[in-house]
Design a protein around this nucleic acid. Structure first.
Lengths: 222, 222, 222, 222
DNA sequence: GATGAATGAGGCTTCATTCAT
DNA sequence: AATGAATGAAGCCTCATTCAT
């Protein structure tokens, strides 16, 4: 079977690259999966090797060590999140909603976002305790992400009754973030985890946010 | 292959001899201290032994193993917190404050409480990820503690405009808890940690809570 | 990225119990033996553990690591050598020999000394390349040892015809040292090793030394 | 396996051979350089491949393994040294110097020679410990090289007062060799390395040699 | 041939737990 | 009871060598 080399050229170097690519993909995927399933101190390269069917040596051919692997995983995941987040924010912005509708939409959107990535986020937060690089990357990503949401909410600044809308929006968003994180067990499992209903929580968060942003300050003075 | 550890509520033997008591005391104190200072994976019995001047053998005479030691430490700390908490709540109750003054007082009181125990709480939360017994104990303690605060707030139920005061108070308190935990880095370090001012946060939390509890539901409807 | 290792003067714990003492003894002896029999890069703790019947863990209970073990071995051997050397030098000094008899005696004595310790010396010299602490200790010991021999020879300074007896003695002793080291393969095996006769070498070294120390400088000028 | 071996059309391979030659050259040169810069246990094919820009696979196509590569390097270097040495010896021979001038000239020449090749010599001596083939080659080369110097010196045999000029010259040359090697750190670093002055050492070595070769044997008898 | 990804044995080290004294 | 030496499984990482492309 003689083949003309014309069409074949495209694939000339493909096979090698493909095999490599595949095993790298397997490696990163398995590693990310293990990371989300375990405590970091139980996350071992031996198991990554076993589960991904990539030898220890190969892991070390591609990454400088355990730290490096974890950081690359973080990069990959953060990039995914950024895209996801950007798409969602853009969709919300297009709708030009009033705050009363935007706030619940933002809460739901952000909540879904966190829920989708809770596994890897929890893992990365744990690692951030001991790996300053992971901490930095996470911090930068988070600040940017939160900033985007705040900018979106501030497009309704005229509706906000609080004297300092920026501050108010920032505070409210942190409130939401903290509550959701806690519910999802980001930043560690803790005692009150998962009690209550997710949808109810989201509604309550929207409510409380609107009460604060749209409220009459006199109400809470004597 | 590590699973969350189950089973096992036992008590350390309570030696009546003074020397024994002292060394047990030294042991628990040093261990608790180390626990708050380190990641759990860096918390080793070897170091506990060295720092507390209690031999490894003695540790194993008193405790079944590392897990058991940690659980006993948790017991001890939780009891302390319970007392602390009870005293504070009682003091607040006595004053019979209206909600507008009670809420800030509760927020400040609870905040100080969390701040005081943040070290050990962070450690225990980390351990709770892998030790089901620690998780359970923490959960129970937390539920009870939170319940006490809620009961206190509900003594002002007549002032609350939300249709379901119990639910509203419960939600608000969780909001406060989540925000404070996040600020204090309980449940792991994360990206937005420690930015902003503590006192401002407390005031904002009081404000937002009052806006919610005392607000007019119509405000947030169209 | 390997650097010469610095720092570190610590001591192995000195167990008082017999069993402990014995196993430490077994450990050090086996380790020293293996060290003399192998290239340093083939000297592994696993084998030390196997040969000495002391578990890896025990090795790490007594020594901070491989480097520390090696340094402790050096200490032990150097102390032995110092004693050996001091005794021999003292014996020679007592006899108050004239240079013509002292020189051969010194050469023979020093030669025997080196021969006795050639194994461990060769090993330590190899290690000195990568471990600055071992290098320092070796250097200090060597300088002191050589100094003692030179002082002994200088007690015959009146017989020496060279204008600067100190310099001459120092040079001659280095000559002897270099030749013996080479013969014994200290400072690595090399190509001409072991050819020729040991006794003849010693006699020749004595001769050449005496020719130099007692010679007439005019002989070598035109 | 369908190779028809004809003698024709071999020119087609010329360019490839050139390229091959070049990469072999690069390989050997880089490898020799790395060898002189590192401990043998830090000399890895991985790094040779990287530095020389020759793939691991190619290295294994050309050499049977690490040992073989090292042996080929030795061959190449030894040939270079032989030429260098031969040229120098021939130059000295032409001048027909008397021993009093020849000896210093030989010492200086040989010293420069060792100094020039100290890097690779040190590396090869280290390898010789574990590779008998390298040891053999080194030994043969060394014996031949030393022999040449001795023959040169023996052209002045009439001036030598020692009863057995061959033996005396042989001994003296080994003395010189040993001292220079030690000074240059060939055959490993050791404790007294590099102290003192190079030029002074060379002069002293010439002096001591002449004292021995031209001395009066009676001087050292009673 | 050339390439370099893949392999895995083997080295160092840590630490929970056991056990002789 | 107290002590702490002893144990060894398990983790990280390196590098000579193999093998598919």
């Amino acid at each position: 079977m003689r083949q003309t080399k014309k069409s074949g050229d495209r694939f000339a170097k493909e096979p090698k690259q493909t095999r490599s690519r595949e095993s790298l993909e397997r490696l990163l995927t398995s590693a990310a999966k293990l990371l989300t399933e375990k405590k970091y101190s139980d996350f071992t390269l031996q198991e990554v090797s076993k589960v991904s069917n990539v030898s220890i040596g190969s892991i070390y051919n591609r990454f400088k060590g355990k730290d490096d692997l974890v950081r690359q995983i973080q990069q990959r995941e953060v990039e995914r999140m950024d895209i996801d987040s950007a798409v969602m924010i853009n969709n919300l912005r297009r709708q030009q909603l009033p705050l009363r509708q935007l706030m619940p939409a933002v809460v739901h959107g952000f909540a879904e976002f966190l829920r989708k990535y809770r596994g890897i986020l929890r893992a990365l937060m744990e690692i951030a305790i001991v790996d300053e690089v992971v901490a930095d990357t996470g911090r930068k990503h988070s600040v940017q992400n939160i900033g985007d949401y705040e900018k979106l909410l501030l497009e309704c600044r005229d509706e906000i009754t609080q004297p300092n809308p920026e501050r108010a929006v920032n505070f409210v968003f942190r409130l939401v973030y903290a509550s959701l994180s806690r519910y999802l067990g980001l930043g560690t499992v803790d005692e009150s985890l998962e009690e209550g209903d997710w949808e109810t929580l989201l509604d309550d968060l929207s409510d409380v946010s609107l009460h604060y942003l749209l409220g009459n300050p006199d109400q809470i003075r004597e």
